[in-house]
Amino acid sequence: MIECINLRKVYESGDTATVALDNVSFKIEDGEYVAIMGPSGSGKSTLMHLLGALDTPTSGKYLLDTVDISTMTDDQLADIRKDKIGFVFQAFNLLPRATVLRNVMLPLMYSEVPKEEREKIARKALANVGMEETRFYHHSNQISGGQMQRVAIARALVANPSLILADEPTGNLDTKTGEIVLSTFEELNKQGRTIVLITHEPDVAEHAHRIIHVRDGKILSDTHTARHPTHKKS
């Protein structure tokens, strides 16, 4: 469960201070599928960095699973990222000359999972995102973009995080492979994973169940989409 209370982030460079986030408060329950939308410069990237425990707010509180991480040190934040957050990036960020399997096992090295178990967990995660076993030993730069992103999603899954944070996951993909990646997220959400999608494309945001619009560092709107379970019921 995510709870943001009056999050504020100010970047200072020289004499000028830029307010990137201005008193943002919201809550995301476990198992939700949320899209954070906004044009560039809206503060959505800053929000993602805070949600992903890559940065700390200037003021305000960020509770992840009821733990306040807004005042943690760099090493404590690293532990939070390791245990609670799975990242999916626009540029995939796979190790190019490593095999698919090795890429997926990488986070388990930092969580000190015994070596024998790593491969088992990684294979399960890869199967979960629909990767065929024949590709497991391909180098990650020898597979297609859509496959790369699914490998990256598998990598985000292995440590069993509370939150999967996807930053423009379809930005480098064509519409068709983008759809496949988005349906992968949908599948994971059905399994009960909390997913936060950061995007500027309305088409992509539509796949989520809830859209938070951000503009000029403030929340513009917070609405349920047609796909929201409660929406269907009503």
Binding site: D75, A78, D79, R81, D83, N93, L106, P107, S111, R155
Partner: peptide
């Protein structure tokens, strides 16, 4: 650099 960024994002500490 990107690999270092990724390693930090998935939980690698400065010491690692």
């Amino acid at each position: 650099t990107r690999e270092i960024g990724l390693r930090k994002a998935i939980g690698g500490k400065s010491r690692d």
